[in-house]
Simulated assay, not measured.
Amino acid sequence: MTKKPAGNLQDPITYVLTLIPAEPPERAIRLRRQIMAVYSYCLLWVGTILGVELSAFAPNTPHLMMFSVLFAINLVFFLLIRSGLSERLGDPSLTILQMATGIILTTVILHYTRELRGAMLSIYFMVMTFGIFALDRRRQMAMAGFTLFCFTTLQVYEWLETPQQAIFSFLIGHWIILALILCWFIYMGGYIHNLQNRVRDQRENLRDAHSRLEAIAVRDDLTGLYNRRHFLERLEEELSLANRNHTPLYLAIIDLDHFKRVNDNYGHHSGDEVLSRFARIASQGLRKSDLLARYGGEEFVVLFPHATEAACEAALERLRRRFAEQGYSFASDIKTTFSAGLTAFQPGETADQLIKRADSALYGAKSRGRNQVVQLPLS
């Protein structure tokens, strides 16, 4: 029987003990926020215990029961996020549920406060802060409304339960203060959320621009194929691999026959169409592992890694026949062909030496009448 390594993530114990995994990063961020919330509740619990001891809270405050239930609920939240089940919901961070839990807890704690109620209203604002970066203005308004509803319900309950202890001016004053600060939170929270969205959009635009610049750096504008500079960089890499692993590597240089006549007789726009047409059918007809690039003007290069001589010749012949069958709207009678020189990499050979031998093979194809593939034999 094969023994599983101790650090195997498939081990349930190891999985549970790994509180915050590195991947996926979005889940790790949500878990950190969850732990921050639990830490805040721990501080609130300590403050509540001190408040009871200092008689700032009612002596019968059931803080042990309240926070036990709270931590149990937060454990469920943590497991939902940690397992990834929350990602099936519209709110993967469970922000609204977590805020609602905190608001209800705060309301219950306020019921047991005495002279500190005005100061303890700040706990509501701590809970609201939790949603500033996660909720848009509409949902922030909903949570502010829920907060005001809970506090109003508490005040009405206490007024009906013990009307002789209720001081109307304090009730109205606390309600107005809470409502005003909640309005401020909605305004600032919406502003911060919109600012965060703009920053995210700018970051995505920068990423897209960077991707486009990378594409421009390695791609030919007209054909979309790799350009000469990128091809030469990849060629050096493939030569190193072929040298080290003793694997076959073939290089073909392709030149479109009489391309200058197309430009001279039909214009550069028609010439561009021929180049683009060749690039498209070549991309479709070659293997994904083959490296196709525009070498310059009407010249193209193909690098065939892990291929046989017969397979390379067959691929070039198929491409030559298909290219010759193409029809063009700018001239119904025009036929386009190409000549190609193919050669195999020799161990220890440099990139320049390989390119020169492929170019010699191309010269042989043109000297023999064009529209053919010629392979330069190994010396």
Rank of each mutant, 00 (worst) to 15 (best):
L160N: 01
I253C: 08
E317G: 06
F278S: 04
R370L: 08
D359Y: 14
R322I: 05
N265H: 11
E309N: 11
S276P: 01
F304R: 02
I334H: 07
G7V: 01
I29A: 09
L251Y: 07
R198H: 14
V262E: 10
G267S: 13
F345L: 05
F149N: 00
M128S: 09
E214R: 10
E273A: 07
F130H: 08
S169C: 01
R318M: 09
I216N: 13
Q165V: 06
P59T: 05
L239Q: 10
L292R: 01
N263S: 09
L354Q: 14
H230I: 04
A56W: 04
T48H: 05
R88D: 05
P21S: 01
D333G: 08
A307H: 08
I123M: 12
T101N: 15
T101V: 12
T106F: 00
L94D: 08
R294A: 10
N194T: 12
V302R: 10
D255Y: 02
C312H: 10
Q346L: 14
G297S: 05
R294G: 04
V199F: 05
Q165D: 09
T61V: 10
L79A: 11
I104N: 06
Y328M: 10
E53G: 02
T101H: 15
H246S: 10
M126T: 14
E158K: 03
G297L: 05
Y363E: 11
L275D: 08
E53S: 06
H63G: 06
I123P: 04
R244D: 11
I186C: 13
F330E: 14
S40F: 01
S122T: 14
G224A: 07
A215G: 03
Q164T: 15
F146S: 02
G90I: 11
E53P: 05
V156R: 06
E313Y: 06
D333R: 11
L94P: 08
D352N: 15
I186N: 14
G190Y: 06
E161L: 07
V127Y: 00
I49S: 07
G190S: 07
A72F: 14
R33W: 06
L171K: 00
F231S: 04
D264W: 06
H210T: 13
T113C: 03
R280F: 02
